[in-house]
């Protein structure tokens, strides 16, 4: 959507401020995921603790963004595009906060894993972390640039991560069946994997909201594959 100068520049600035804060929260969550994965791979408990501490910043931002949105709802009574933007911002904010919490969950598991010998080399987990981060970054890019195509692309990435999660689950299951002493470690790794998978779900949720913001169509409860590919093509008959 090309930007047309708004009559009230104050209003515009308030909207931009919300955008900036959400982007900032996105960067923080992305970093948290990256750090927690590194902490796991390189067995750096220090880094994992940093992630747990860092969540306070994300929570603070969550509160701030929510207040900004509520104030805007109360004072500006946004409609149409602005209304969709604000509802999207509120939901994205919720997703990011949950993602931050999940990074903390993972960090806690990492701390426990780092206390014991490594069960196996991690191959799929870093890939999951990579994809999850890409999904967060991509969905927020789509949000900022109001790009439906990109958002839709992100939504489809979710299935990859689901597959990886199932793969890890089966693999760890065989470990546990073969040797019951691995159960504790395997369960911890499973939880890490599960949390990464949930993070990707939240990223998809962000992308769903972006599709709604741009097109006005609710796709939250549709499988990305079910959604017609031309959902973004529903161009309006602009003059």
């Amino acid at each position: 959507m090309d930007e047309i100068k708004r009559t009230s520049s104050h209003y515009e600035r308030e909207l931009q401020d919300i955008k900036q804060n959400i982007l900032y929260a996105g960067v923080l969550t992305e970093m948290a995921i990256q750090n927690v994965v590194v902490a796991l791979l390189e067995r750096k408990s220090e880094l994992a603790r940093k992630v747990i501490d860092g969540d306070k910043e994300i929570d603070k931002l969550d509160t701030e963004i929510e207040e900004q949105c509520i104030r805007l709802l109360a004072l500006r009574q946004p409609i149409a595009r602005d209304l969709r933007f604000i509802t999207t911002a509120i939901k994205i904010n919720g997703h990011l906060e949950r993602i931050g919490d999940m990074a903390v969950n993972i960090a806690e598991k990492v701390l426990q894993l780092n206390e014991v010998p490594q069960l196996k080399p991690y191959i799929d987990l870093p890939r999951m972390g990579e994809i999850a981060r890409e999904m967060i970054r991509g969905s927020l890019d789509a949000f900022v640039r109001e790009e439906c195509e990109l958002a839709n692309h992100i939504r489809r990435m979710d299935s990859t991560i689901d597959t990886l999660n199932e793969q890890i689950f089966r693999e760890l299951l065989t470990f546990m069946l073969e040797d019951t002493r691995t159960v504790h470690r395997a369960l911890l790794i499973m939880q890490v994997s599960k949390n990464l998978e949930r993070i990707a779900d939240h990223a998809k949720g962000i992308a769903d909201m972006v599709v709604y913001m741009v097109t006005g169509i609710n796709v939250r409860h549709q499988w990305p594959g079910d959604t017609s590919d031309n959902i973004c093509d529903e161009k309006r008959d602009d003059s």
Binding site: P78, I79, D82, R84, R236
Partner: peptide
């Protein structure tokens, strides 16, 4: 919530 025309949206959102 989601007008069909961009002109409508620009007007009602004060753009």
């Amino acid at each position: 919530t989601k007008p069909d025309h961009k002109q409508t949206e620009d007007y009602i959102t004060g753009r």
